[in-house]
């Protein structure tokens, strides 16, 4: 843990060497998610609601997804840019050090500019919480917190999976975007609006409904089953296959050297 903080310090120090670039990028991050917000806002001002969900509810959902995405992207960024790590040969350097590989990949890149996106997510939350008419009792606050934690688990797993796949194909990796960026993008709305089939896909294959949809139903009072609060924790189960796949890829890397 102490070592992790050291890594954070050195990354922060590095990035602060280019202050102008740092803030421009952070502002850019903010604006990109802000334009996504405006998209939702204009759609809802035209249609007023979608499948019964109104703007404040949708913004809570959007905000949870964006918060967990921004946090995972900030700290798990090393896996997000993993193909570069392979191509530059820096993965070899990592393997030459007597520490866990995953830990070292995590610390190889920590992207602080993502706070621009986080800020945007939190602003939406601040706006949506009073507007949603939800009575904020302890269990509801719990729900939001667990939703975010579960979201971080799922997004981080997706990034790890992404890195695992890049051991096999660096070029074809683009299709993973549908799971990482796509989840962020389409997670703006409660995933049930896409229809039953997609909901099933997002429950059993890429389990984002576990943190984005089911607990959300409890949060906005559309369901009473209190068990839904803890559903996001299942997101941690998703980490296991993703991590195993990464290890598998790493073993192959060591046997092909490419």
């Amino acid at each position: 843990m102490k070592l992790y903080l050291k890594f954070i310090a050195i990354q922060l120090k590095s990035q602060m060497q280019y202050k102008a670039s740092f803030f421009m990028t952070a502002v850019g991050q903010f604006l990109i998610s802000f334009s996504a917000f405006l998209g939702v806002y204009f759609m809802l001002s035209r249609f007023h609601s979608v499948k019964g969900f109104e703007l404040p509810e949708i913004l809570i959902c959007f905000s949870v997804v964006l918060t967990s995405f921004a946090i995972s992207e900030c700290f798990v960024r090393g896996f997000d840019v993993f193909p570069r790590l392979i191509q530059s040969g820096n993965l070899d350097r990592i393997l030459l050090r007597p520490r866990n590989e995953v830990f070292q990949v995590l610390t190889s890149n920590i992207e602080f500019t993502r706070f621009g996106r986080l800020l945007q997510a939190l602003l939406m939350l601040v706006y949506a919480v009073p507007a949603s008419g939800i009575v904020w009792s302890f269990d509801k606050i719990m729900t939001v917190v667990l939703m975010i934690i579960g979201g971080i688990a799922v997004f981080s797993s997706l990034f790890v999976l992404y890195a695992g796949i890049s051991f096999f194909t660096v070029e074809g990796i683009e299709f993973m975007n549908i799971f990482t960026d796509g989840t962020k993008e389409f997670g703006k709305y409660p995933v049930s609006i896409y229809g039953k089939g997609i909901l099933k896909f997002y429950t059993y294959v890429v389990p984002i409904a576990l943190f984005q949809y089911y607990p959300f139903l409890y949060l906005v009072g559309r369901s009473d089953s209190i068990g839904l609060i803890f559903l996001p924790l299942l997101g941690f189960l998703f980490m296991i296959p993703c991590y195993c796949f990464f290890r598998f890829g790493l073993r192959r890397y060591k046997s092909t050297g490419s």
């Binding site: 759609m43 249609f47 609601s49 979608v50 499948k51 019964g52 194909t169 070029e171 074809g172 990796i173 683009e174 299709f175 975007n177 549908i178 796509g182 389409f186 709305y189 609006i193 896409y194 229809g195 997609i198």
Partner: peptide
């Protein structure tokens, strides 16, 4: 490989986008 990856992504992306608009349309 990049082309196939891109095709798959864009197809899925377009599909989901259309489903999203369908929700608004049905509303």
């Amino acid at each position: 490989a990049a082309a196939w990856g891109g095709i798959a992504t864009q197809f899925a992306w377009g599909f989901l986008t259309i489903l999203m608009y369908r929700a608004f349309y049905e509303t």
